[in-house]
Design a protein around this nucleic acid. Sequence first.
DNA 1: TATTATTTCAAACAAATGTTTGAAATGTGC
DNA 2: GCACATTTCAAACATTTGTTTGAAATAATA
Lengths: 215, 215
Amino acid sequence: MDQHTPATQRDAGKESVRERLLDAAEVLFCERGFDGVSVRDLTSQANCNVAAVNYYFGGKDKLYQEMFKRQVQDICCRQIARINEAMSVPNPTLESVLREIILMPLLAAYEKQQRGRVMRLMVREVLNKTVHGETILEAFHTQMMTHAVQALRTLVPQLDDKHARLAVFSVDSLKIHPFLFMDEFFAVNPGIHFDELVDHIVSFAAAGIRAMAAR
Amino acid sequence: MDQHTPATQRDAGKESVRERLLDAAEVLFCERGFDGVSVRDLTSQANCNVAAVNYYFGGKDKLYQEMFKRQVQDICCRQIARINEAMSVPNPTLESVLREIILMPLLAAYEKQQRGRVMRLMVREVLNKTVHGETILEAFHTQMMTHAVQALRTLVPQLDDKHARLAVFSVDSLKIHPFLFMDEFFAVNPGIHFDELVDHIVSFAAAGIRAMAAR
DNA sequence: TATTATTTCAAACAAATGTTTGAAATGTGC
DNA sequence: GCACATTTCAAACATTTGTTTGAAATAATA
């Protein structure tokens, strides 16, 4: 009554019910949030019985947490991989690394990919505070921060640890805010296009960091 | 059956039921969001009958909208006033104006004032998208943006309209992100204090803008 | 004071929610 | 094929939700 991983049943071809429920959860919760999705919404999207949520996960919120944890892990890995990748090209410059870090997430949001919606949900959850932001996102933040700080300090050796952390935080600001509010920005400012925004953010961030390095 | 403003009844001393409900809504909704607060929570906080919400506002969501509109208006006015004030001192510099714009909201969040919670709720609602973000916040964004762009262009005349808008957006980024995630940042980075963060943001933003002006 | 409108209230209502149940169906190992 | 565990399902359950109701209380008007 503890572990309900399908014992021997091969989930050949079509996914297992458990898997389908996690998929449905990812899509629906990201679209409408925790309260905006009922168990019946989930189970009808996953083509299974209402009781399946409790059978496999022990409750709606347990399913939510499982899906959330899975997504955080995914995003975290992807982000770190991106930093490493950007740092391992022949001659990484501040601008090239910044662009690598900023472009992809922004593009995901711009093109309304699922990845973008997941990130939005995560921000929402941290804001709501009610939900497990602590454990998951603290590790997330910590892990990410140390990784980014390290990269930044090899790019701009003049920065001490404290200033590197401040810089990373500001780069995060410059990235996440448009990530969340791009639509509103473009709506209010027609005539500014996606590429211009990205270019601007990259050079704005670089200028800020270089000014810090110059004391 | 349309307007339920108390006709002649003087609400001397203690507030009217309507007023108390709006106050309760402000506190509770900001704390727990729309779905996190039941009508009974509201009415018991306001010390009135459950039916009062429907009697005075015509429903829970109408009350929510009314309270929301009220708060947006309030924040909007305050923000614009702050810009005007910062611009009307003897010799306004880019840094002095930026500090004026950034310090107060951040302090409100840092000290966990009600104002800070309202802003958080607004961001949450824009993210949720489901709720009337369009009408209210578009006007909000538009109004604010034009005001800020105007101020910035008198401070840094080299900026054309487009670049001024990008700059304002980035200053917004640098302000709102820490506004939302300050707690997490300080938790992950002990040894960095509030004043340092503010100083950093101001000079980071100024450097970014000056670099834009320098082409 | 008598009449009328407004406000308050306890109770009930209908709908939706997450969860449980117990039996039927399905698969597994002998 | 038989006993066993696992999975599926329709139905019911207990709460909670926002809202309505109709009468009682209160204020306003004459």
